[in-house]
Design a protein around this nucleic acid. Structure first.
Lengths: 143, 143
DNA sequence: GATATATACTTGATTAGTCAATCATATATC
DNA sequence: GATATATGATTGACTAATCAAGTATATATC
């Protein structure tokens, strides 16, 4: 009956936590007209050299499929948050660059996102949060 | 440029981790013909008194909307994994009971799920995993 | 006991993603 | 240098969810 497997109950809890965090973050970012996924795209672009990445790199960074990236970026390009660049060394590649408009929006959204994140984690001390991030990173890296 | 906010980078990492876990778990459960969401539904039903819950309780437990539950349960009922019961004290309520077939499938799937969970968390000691669950629960409870 | 409000659930329309197939280009091999 | 294979990206068809609106029933108030 009751779940005796620690690892299994972690997965169940993890999934529930995700839905809670996702809901809160999406609600907060909606006032900037973007979703959490779009925010993540901009986050990775903002931290990349030249604010530029290949689409497949974005897919891997965010954790969605290549086709998901194509569909996600289309409206972002129409709204001039990003710009399409080609790679002269490899014509298969479509580079994505965070535009000036996109960078500004990202900075604004980052303030909301930061407050939201602080709020959602306010019950943990810095040490606990660092610990949590460390443990999460081990799960991500699989080491 | 680089994210100085600890809480914010936690949220980004959390989202990425979720996509990784979701993918792996869904892949594992697909051999039983169910999704992770369906597994969670059965998990909560299996642990409920009489293996029975109201639909809105299921929605809250799993972290999806009421309409999401309606849409999710429809095929599960057709496949006889769950049964619909009415509440004689409140005709608005539609009770959901895990069927015998559903309980058997859940037990089988729990074995796969357990292995999958062990595998995904194998790099953490029991103590670390307990610690991770505790920290996650604080985020969930907001205390 | 009629009326207003709240709760449980379902439905129609929409959205964000998936996968499988495809196209274009690049790279390796003979 | 022709051919096979691999890689990056897009598209069509589909799925799992959302929200807003609607229906049915219950509860509280006058």
């Amino acid at each position: 009956m009751s779940e005796s497997n620690l690892a299994a109950s972690f997965l169940i809890g993890q999934s529930f936590l995700h839905s809670k965090l996702q809901r809160k973050v999406d609600g907060q970012l909606s006032m900037h007209g973007i979703s959490f996924t779009e925010y993540q795209i901009m986050h990775h672009l903002a931290n990349a050299p030249e604010q530029t990445m290949r689409r497949i790199e974005l897919a891997d960074s965010v954790g969605i499929s290549a086709s998901g990236v194509t569909r996600l970026l289309a409206p972002m390009e129409k709204n001039h948050l990003i710009e399409k660049r080609s790679n002269p060394r490899d014509a298969r590649v479509s580079l994505v660059k965070l535009s000036k408009v996109g960078a500004t929006l990202f900075q604004d959204a980052s303030v909301s996102f930061g407050y939201c994140a602080e709020d959602l984690t306010s019950m943990l001390s810095t040490k606990q949060l660092e610990n949590l991030i460390d443990l999460s990173n081990r799960l991500i890296d699989g080491r």
